[in-house]
């Protein structure tokens, strides 16, 4: 089943209107002295447990807003605040 995400501007819309932007993982590490290893860890390593987490989404076929929402990978659904 498909599901809906809550866009802060447009409200609840079908998930296929959105582009997945990945998990929220804090600010990008500074370029100064950044090792290839640390850069790779930041871009690719993930902890994806059966628990809700904050994510970035982009309303590509809507208002064009990048926003954060909480979704649970175990249920594939947005978690209501």
């Amino acid at each position: 089943m498909t599901f809906r995400l809550t866009c802060p501007v447009c409200g609840k819309r079908d998930v296929y209107e959105f582009t997945f932007g990945g998990q929220e993982r804090g600010p990008r590490p500074g370029q100064e002295g950044l090792s290839a290893e640390d850069h790779f860890r930041w871009t690719q390593y993930r902890l994806i447990p059966y628990a809700p987490g904050e994510e970035w989404w982009y309303h590509a076929q809507g208002c064009g807003l990048w926003f954060k929402t909480t979704r649970d990978p175990a249920t594939n659904r947005e978690v209501e605040e």
Partner: peptide
Amino acid sequence: DPQVNYTNDATAY
């Protein structure tokens, strides 16, 4: 589907 998840959701899309 592009978003990470552990379900077996199939979609009409």
